[in-house]
């Protein structure tokens, strides 16, 4: 564990909490993509199946359980409790176009052709593009509430911090995982345009509005 990884995990946790609290407090999930939330639930489920056969540390186990619970909790709030506020007409990204290629790629490019390993690889590939329905929703409506922007910023920071973690681990531990690194870089790049808008607009107190 190094500082970059810890900060990355905390950003990730904060993003998830921001989203849950926002939906709960406003009693609304307007502006949030349920498709992205479904993809994240698929990501955590396929990656954290190792909860049953691998123990790393109490920290690791607790975080995995929290991510899984928060993810399914968000889906419950969006698709059950506050379903009436869900922006279904704008949330039209076809997630099968992300799931199918991630699955095929995981079968071809992996560390070992074993069920849990392929599921882990699939989760890494799918996570790298799981935010696309959310970014698509923001681009369709042309704006995002500032709290949604904070959520996206924390979620993007998490993977960016993980890149620093991987650089650190490469030099300090001689550890690296090319699958995670390449997918993590793709994931971070997808946020770059958003980071720019966040820094130039949201941090100056303006609403995140896309140019017409």
């Amino acid at each position: 564990m190094n500082i970059f990884r810890l900060l990355g995990d905390l950003s990730h946790l904060l993003a998830i909490i921001i989203l849950l609290v926002k939906i709960w407090k406003t009693r609304s999930c307007a502006g949030i993509s349920g498709k992205s939330q479904i993809l994240f639930a698929v990501v955590y489920t396929s990656r954290y199946l190792d909860l049953i056969n691998a123990f790393i540390s109490p920290y690791n186990t607790i975080m995995k359980i929290v991510f899984l619970a928060a993810s399914y909790g968000t889906i419950y709030l969006m698709y059950m409790k506050f379903k009436a506020t869900y922006d279904v007409n704008h949330d039209t990204f076809r997630i099968e176009f992300l799931i199918a290629p991630a699955a095929v790629l995981a079968l071809i490019v992996n560390h070992a052709f074993e069920p849990l390993e392929i599921l882990w690889t699939f989760s890494i590939y799918l996570e790298s593009v799981a935010i696309l329905p959310q970014l698509f929703l923001v681009s369709k409506t042309g704006e995002a509430e500032s709290i949604t922007s904070h959520y996206l910023f924390m979620l993007g920071s998490y993977r960016a911090l993980y890149i620093f973690n991987w650089i650190y681990r490469y030099y300090a531990e001689n550890h690296y995982d090319l699958i995670a690194i390449v997918a993590g870089i793709v994931q971070t790049v997808l946020y770059c345009d958003f980071f720019y808008l966040y820094i130039t607009k949201v941090l100056k107190g303006k609403k995140l509005q896309l140019p017409a």
Partner: peptide, 10 residues
């Protein structure tokens, strides 16, 4: 990187 070591990250 070995095949198993990535399981220590989240």
């Amino acid at each position: 990187g070995s095949a198993k070591s990535h399981h220590d990250e989240l």
